[in-house]
Design a protein around this nucleic acid. Structure first.
Length: 457
RNA sequence: GGCUCUAUCGUCUAACGGUUAGGACGAAAGCUUCUCAAGCUUUAAAUCCGGGUUCGAUUCCCGGUAGAGUCACCA
């Protein structure tokens, strides 16, 4: 049996460490993605770590939330852990620091509610810390103005900066890839590393994704969107991943649509942007549409079906088979599946499943008010279409059956009433496509019905 | 305000000292089977400002300006 440790020696280990203090935001997806991509590309390990050391703000439901996000996105982790379960480990390191005189118990005067009268402070050596960032380059900061910062409320309650350093070291994290808001935290974490004798990981700080108004996508920002709303609104995981990868990074070529596998292959820290970017939802829409196009017919149908409201499914003409004929028409008109729900609720889909009702004036093309001619056109179209065999009732056949007549009679004069008779809508797919979807019997019925309305007046 | 970082079309970005500064999203216009959608074609749109270095700066250096992050007993 081969020695595992030898195998993984020198291997890349990355991590993503969300804190369960609110519904996980879309912006965070990118950090997770880059850590994931980097680990997969290097055949390394990707660890997901729940940073729940704050007992009052951490909630189980929020942990479940981000777990669900990553499951949906397919960013599977190799290891999972919770900081709340590692108290013993932190305690050991804390004790070592205390006995080495690198930290001390400090008497305090509580300023805020909940503040302790005694905390553990780190003895700041007050020096200039320099580190290299794979994206930003060399950075050095004088840590003197940090003072002797607090690393634990008490021996059982270590704080963020301390637990991060201990965990990254214990887990053998080789690359810390995280948002740029952490560059200011890095010097103090390096100080702690040096105090506990930890090795320094490679740092890569990602540019921030700002909201439309150029502000950080923070948890408290009301404009910010919980990640799962994208799932619920019918965005594809691959599209969201693609979009996130492309904001702040690009592979250099002119390709813009990528699968997760392609991203794993192409990703590189060198090509990560230095400047902050804005969340460009229009581009996401476009990318989602591109990924929708690449979906199989089965998956496409399934997505559309789940977003169809029950009111539509209850319509008399509704069937799975009918739906599958409409799918291409719908797919062409949406950027995300949530729009299916919108369309259905606006009644834009009803005419596929039941005969439309419309005022008869709508059958007339523009200023043409000649009822006799209109009636005749409707009948001719019905006759032309009636001659097509059931088995050949396709869009192409229908078009070629009607086209010559429409050309001589005037396209609008023929096509508009034909389409209106089938859809009852000012706007809809073209009449040939509609007829093919509705099939011969229903098409003829609707044409006949239109003729009857005109004939009556 | 201190500290740190950043700066190419509205947005995402390409151009590792030499290009008519390229692409994509979005926008506008036109074409295509009546309407819509899709598609195709075209157009408008950028190197923050000022100094250097250099034969030559989007690119290197300095200053300014602007923007962002961060300054917790949150993470």
């Amino acid at each position: 049996m081969p020695d595992r440790r030898a195998q993984t020696a020198g291997a890349v280990i990355t991590r993503f460490a969300p804190s369960p203090t609110g519904p996980f935001q879309v912006g965070g997806v990118r950090s997770a993605l880059f850590n994931y991509l980097y680990a997969r590309q290097h055949k390394g390990k990707y660890i997901l770590r729940c940073e729940d050391t704050d007992p009052v703000r951490s909630k189980k439901e929020y942990e479940d939330y981000f777990l669900e996000v990553f499951a949906w996105l397919g960013l599977e982790h190799d290891e999972y852990c919770r900081q709340s379960e590692r108290g013993l480990l932190y305690g050991t390191y804390l004790n070592d620091l205390l006995s080495a005189g690198k930290a001390y118990i400090s008497k305090e005067e509580p300023k805020k509610e909940g503040e302790r009268a005694e905390v553990v402070r780190f003895k700041n050596p007050n020096k200039v810390v320099s580190f290299h960032d794979e994206i930003l380059g060399d950075i050095s900061v004088d840590t003197t103005d940090l003072g002797d910062f607090v690393i634990a409320r008490d021996m059982q309650s270590p704080l963020y900066h301390f637990t991060v350093v201990v965990d990254d070291f214990e887990m053998g994290i080789t690359h810390v890839i995280r948002g740029k808001e952490h560059v200011a935290n890095t010097p103090r974490q390096i100080l702690i590393q040096e105090a506990i004798g930890a090795t320094r990981p490679i740092y890569a700080h990602l540019p921030l994704i700002l909201s439309q108004d150029r502000k950080k996508l923070s948890k408290r920002d009301p404009n910010v969107t919980p990640a799962l709303t994208y799932r619920d609104n019918g965005y594809l995981p691959e599209a969201l991943l693609n979009f996130m990868a492309l904001t702040g990074w690009n592979p250099g070529g002119e390709q813009e649509v990528f699968t997760k596998e392609e991203l794993i292959k192409l990703f590189s820290l060198e090509r990560v942007q230095r400047s902050d970017g804005i969340f460009n939802s229009e581009k996401l829409e476009w990318l989602n549409k591109e990924h929708i196009r690449r979906l199989s017919k089965e998956k496409l149908t399934a997505h559309i079906e789940t977003h169809l409201p029950s009111g539509t499914k209850d319509l008399p003409g509704y069937s799975r088979e009918m739906l599958s004929r409409i799918v291409p028409v719908i797919a062409e008109r949406i950027t995300h599946f949530g729009e299916v729900t919108l369309m259905a609720n606006d009644g834009e889909l009803d005419f596929y499943f039941k005969a439309p009702v419309y005022p008869k004036e709508k059958l007339f093309w523009k200023e043409d008010r000649d009822a006799v001619k209109l009636l005749n056109r409707l009948n001719v179209v019905a006759d032309l279409i009636g001659r097509i065999h059931d088995a050949e009732f396709t869009q192409e056949q229908i078009k070629s059956a009607v086209w010559d007549y429409a050309e001589t009679e005037g396209r609008g004069q023929v096509l508009w009433p034909m389409r209106y008779a089938l859809s009852g809508k000012d706007r809809s797919p073209d009449p040939f496509q509609l007829a093919a979807i509705l099939e011969k019997k229903e098409t003829l019925e609707r044409l006949k019905n239109a003729a009857a309305i005109i004939g009556k007046g």
